[in-house]
Design a protein around this nucleic acid. Sequence first.
DNA 1: CGAAGAACATACTAAGTAGTATGTCACGCC
DNA 2: GGCGTGACATACTACTTAGTATGTTCTTCG
Lengths: 212, 212
Amino acid sequence: MVKTTLREAPRSDKSGNAELLQAAAECFMEQGFHATSIDDVARRLGATKGRVYHYYRSKTDLFFDVHREGMRRNFDAVRPVARGPEPGAARLRAMFLRHALAMMENLPFETVVVQGVHMHRMAATTPAQRRVLDELMTIRNDFEALFKSVAYEGVEDGSIRTNDVSVAIKAALGALNWICIWYRPRSGETHDDRLILAEKIVDTIMNGLAAG
Amino acid sequence: MVKTTLREAPRSDKSGNAELLQAAAECFMEQGFHATSIDDVARRLGATKGRVYHYYRSKTDLFFDVHREGMRRNFDAVRPVARGPEPGAARLRAMFLRHALAMMENLPFETVVVQGVHMHRMAATTPAQRRVLDELMTIRNDFEALFKSVAYEGVEDGSIRTNDVSVAIKAALGALNWICIWYRPRSGETHDDRLILAEKIVDTIMNGLAAG
DNA sequence: CGAAGAACATACTAAGTAGTATGTCACGCC
DNA sequence: GGCGTGACATACTACTTAGTATGTTCTTCG
């Protein structure tokens, strides 16, 4: 008798789960991971549990996939401006700006990413889920490392000054990630509005608050 | 017949709940509000539900009280240096430093405060709980307003430069609040170690990353 | 010393929810 | 034109857990 291997692989990456991811991201943003039920996600789609469990074997897997998508968007936003002939400070500024805009324009996904970071140190999961979580944290660390490497280049070319690149980047990314706590899109808001806001934030990060 | 008013007031502020608050804060930090059961909190105390429900009528009320205590500590840390003869920038720097230290030294409570802010826009609560939540957000806003007012004074006395005080403060507080996401105390860590770290963060906020 | 209330522990209920098992319908394919 | 399979819906189970009701011990105070 063959051991029937039903659903051995996580069933993601099928067409049609973009909607699902979006709905899940919105639910997770509004209520958090634990307070969101699978039925909530399904209801938002005008569907039932069946649809969700057809694509994901567990709520955790769904959450992870939303997280993964959020990080993908973050990388896509930042990577194009990370390398180039400009001095480090200019590239870092561009990266910050892109990231700030991404925070605002992918709010549900970014909120899930933040929750995921929060979740990292916390509650026990199955070994398989733990592996996925570690993978996601690796991605997250790579993201931070990308900023750090550009910052180091800036220190070397003299365009950036700090006595601890690692801490400085953590502070800067904190200011940016915090956006998803207080920012809510205003109705009628344009891309330019967001750009102005993002520039104010990045100016603060790059120039600081002290005069002179 | 008298309408028996059993437990009309939230039963807090009795002696002996400091332990309870601490245990609850730790649980909420490690697992988040929803994933933490009352039994978890009790177990951490070597007690049972009975003890928790003797002091708090609901899990939400317990959470709120932890939040309140966290905000109380924040105010206590920052207020003493908010006013004085020094220029705004110097006072603001001192406030940031105190807040950064408070974040590290009250990690469980601060994490709950962050969760509470997160919770604000979110899931439905009872009308009474909504009132408490609004009260907590008022406190939170007052806290932010204190920073803003000092920043304004700094702008006027020329020690601070920014084109949007409100956004700049949000960015700065974001960098500080984010501490509770990545910071974990190292064993054998001293107060001086934390002070050095806090100063690096505050330097970044005050001076920015750009050279010159 | 007796009684009342504080400070818990124990036992229980009711409700919500993750996950499963199974059904159904449409469609492509031999 | 049957048939397998993908894409869901429906019905159900098992378990967790917030909150309650009640019991018990200790303390305090008249």
